[in-house]
């Protein structure tokens, strides 16, 4: 078990290194260069240009530049924003909490309501099931930005229950400000997870282990919890993990719709400003979060399915 964990963590670190390289290299290949951006249309003396190049290590070989960047990033130094002349880390520390709050809030909404609705739907065939399935049909068809605009129009503008702009300060104010964005972000994911949960539960309820449990005279509660739900969790965790990881990318859109100064918003403006250091830093953080979530899902599997643990020991 611990060997399996170690292997997962090692794999995660290697993957993080590879992605950091890809992120760094892809910006290197992108059109425009830092010095062109800095000087714009101004003509500058070769001495000044050389000084700037030296300061940013722009003349060093590519791999060496990557190495400088990596070492700095590992020390928490993401460089200085070329456009704003402020440390990138400072801008990140302002934006990251908003996005993190939004993602966690939305993830909780997705997992709790998706699993609850799916289980309910599987256990109560008939009207309730039909109602939930109709709702999820609509839900899966609504893109996040449409859901966001509709929620804004109804609960923000018309009913005036929630603020339409900004991230708020302090926990409860932030909760209120981020409710509509989190719901918008969760919308189709809840619908999808509900369907997966329902299918998975249905399958387990008709499966052999449930039949065995029923034949032993176990109560419906024990059969549903210990056998049907427990076994259905494996596909549920897979899909939930993918969706939570997907939320990290989804925040880019929602932050635009709701005017939130999160990482997605920061990424978008930095790309427009050709702010290399910031784009690199934000991309790296988003990708790292994605990888960490996936690793957590993998580790959860081993707790859910003992057969995976054996596979790790044998190899």
């Amino acid at each position: 078990m611990s060997r399996y964990l170690l292997r997962q963590l090692l794999g995660m670190i290697v993957l993080l290194l590879v992605t950091s390289f890809v992120i760094y290299a892809s910006l290197f290949l992108a059109p425009g260069s830092p010095d062109a951006l800095l000087f714009g249309a101004h003509t500058v003396s070769p001495a000044l240009r050389a000084a700037v190049n030296r300061q940013y290590h722009l003349n060093d070989p590519f791999l060496q530049q990557y190495w400088y960047w990596l070492v700095n990033v590992l020390h928490g130094n993401f460089g200085t924003s070329i456009t704003y002349r402020t440390p990138v880390a400072l801008r990140l520390s302002a934006a990251a909490p908003v996005t993190a709050f939004l993602v966690i809030y939305s993830a909780i909404l997705i997992i709790v309501s998706g699993v609850a609705l799916g289980v309910l739907s599987a256990l109560r065939p008939g009207k309730l099931d039909t109602l939930i399935m109709t709702a999820t049909n609509i839900g899966t068809a609504v893109p996040t930005f449409v859901a966001g605009l509709i929620l804004l129009a109804i609960f923000g503008v018309k009913l005036n229950w929630f603020p339409v702009y900004g991230a708020g300060a302090g926990f409860f104010d932030r909760l209120r400000h981020l409710t509509l964005p989190a719901v918008a972000l969760a919308f189709w994911a809840v619908a999808y997870l509900t369907r997966v949960t329902r299918t998975s539960m249905r399958e387990e309820l008709q499966g052999d282990p449930v039949m065995t449990a029923r034949s032993r005279g176990l109560s419906r509660r024990v059969v549903v919890q210990r056998h049907a739900f427990r076994n259905a969790l494996i596909p549920i965790v897979t899909v939930a993990g993918l969706q939570v990881a997907g939320l990290i990318a989804g925040t880019v859109i929602v932050e635009q719709v709701f005017g939130l100064n999160g990482l997605g918003e920061l990424l978008l403006t930095s790309v427009q400003d050709k702010d290399f250091a910031t784009v690199q830093a934000v991309s790296l953080i988003l990708v790292a979060a994605f990888i960490v979530v996936n690793t957590l899902v993998d580790i959860t599997y081993t707790m859910l399915d003992p057969r995976i643990r054996l596979g790790a020991n044998q190899s």
């Binding site: 282990p209 065995t212 034949s215 210990r226």
Partner: peptide, 13 residues
């Protein structure tokens, strides 16, 4: 009841 295929009938988890 004793079922036909214990591999399928005994919950693997």
């Amino acid at each position: 009841m004793i079922f036909q295929d214990p591999r399928a009938s005994i919950n693997p988890v």
